[in-house]
Simulated scan of single mutants.
Amino acid sequence: MRSARHLHLPVWALLLLLHFSAFVPGARGQQETDDESEFSYDCGSENGPENWGKIKEEWATCGTGRMQSPIDLSDRHAAQAPNLGYLNHSYRSAKASIVNRGHDIAVMFQGDAGSLWINGTAYHLRQVHWHSPSEHHLNSHQYSLELHMVHLSTENKAAVIGRLYKIGRREHFLHKLEPYLRRMAGTKEKEENVGVVDPWEARGDGEAYYRYTGSLTTPACGEGVIWTVIKRVATVSTHQLKLLTDAVHDGFEMNARPLQKLNGRDISLFCAHDDHERYYAAADY
């Protein structure tokens, strides 16, 4: 588990760590909750998405924030931004474990899995997880699955790469995880080591991307997250999608937060000149 690394610390050290984190800018807001029993994705329920901000004081941003995610990434609202350039990321294979967090399945990296560089700041890859159906929409179209690659800076600021999937051929990265997903569905195991994982396989293909400032999509919905959503839509098999949804806890088979208001935010779109026509011609909305 993510908390296991602190089990051998003395009590005074744990208290000091918790005290310090309360004063680090964004330390709480850039973290996801681990207790899925307190919230759900059931719209209309007492603990559903529209009420997340009322459940806990520290979750208030879920209801009051004006830079919330996900959003509909519309080409009509996106401004061409060639100055953004190609994504500057350097990933490396690292040991990892697969974790059933109840509300989703995540691959947690235990070593240095590389970084994403944005405006001179390094955001270190910490974990990847999935949402079904997709949380972001492209031109009002919702897809079958979305992968989030979560990166954190040394100041605990988040940058997330999102990748969308439609039903089709099996996905290579998920294919390697299928045995672990099957065991989790059968035994409800919470965590299992998966050996060395190559993040490049999760990143996949596609150079064109959308960029905007938003939030985490689970409580506490901390804002200031730099979102990069790859424009090219990948494919996932129906079998792989079922493995992911069977592994999570009952009630979280559909774990996508509803769309949030844009509230005048800018959406930028980077698309290399030689790829521009090809991407738009091949778009499948």
Rank of each mutant, 00 (worst) to 15 (best):
M1T: 03
K176Q: 09
D274S: 00
K190G: 14
G120H: 05
Q68L: 15
V248N: 03
L152E: 11
V99H: 03
K157F: 14
W12H: 13
S40P: 10
G214K: 07
E36K: 08
F270T: 06
L174R: 02
N263H: 12
H148C: 00
D72E: 06
A159Y: 05
T61R: 14
R232M: 10
L145R: 01
D205Y: 10
H8P: 00
S74C: 08
H89P: 03
A282E: 09
D112M: 11
A202K: 03
A202T: 07
A27Y: 01
F23Y: 10
D284F: 08
T33Y: 07
G26E: 05
V225A: 09
K261Q: 07
Y41P: 09
Q240A: 06
H77L: 15
H175L: 13
M149E: 14
R203G: 05
S21H: 12
L244F: 09
R265G: 15
K188R: 15
M67P: 05
H172N: 07
W59A: 13
S140N: 08
E57Q: 11
G111T: 11
I167R: 08
R126L: 15
N47M: 12
L243P: 09
D104M: 06
H273C: 02
R170F: 08
F173T: 07
E50Y: 06
A281E: 11
F23N: 09
R183S: 01
H249L: 11
A106M: 08
K157G: 04
G222H: 04
S237F: 03
H8F: 11
H77I: 15
S45M: 09
T61A: 06
F20W: 13
Y123E: 09
Y91T: 04
E50S: 07
Y209I: 01
A96L: 03
M254A: 01
W227I: 01
F39M: 12
R101A: 07
V24T: 09
V99Q: 01
N263Y: 03
E189L: 14
L174S: 04
L7W: 03
A185K: 10
M67R: 15
R28Q: 13
L125D: 00
L244W: 04
G162D: 00
G168S: 08
H141L: 08
K242V: 05
L177N: 13
R232L: 10
W130T: 12
P219F: 14
R265A: 14
K166R: 13
M184Q: 11
S140P: 02
Y209W: 13
G48S: 08
D250S: 00
H249D: 11
G48H: 03
M67A: 11
Y123N: 05
T245Y: 12
T213V: 12
A81N: 10
W227M: 12
I161C: 02
G186V: 06
F270K: 09
T235H: 00
M149G: 04
P10T: 09
G65M: 03
P10N: 07
K56L: 03
H136P: 04
C271P: 00
V160H: 11
I71M: 06
S268P: 06
L259E: 02
W130F: 14
A185P: 02
N51C: 00
Y210M: 06
G214P: 00
D274F: 03
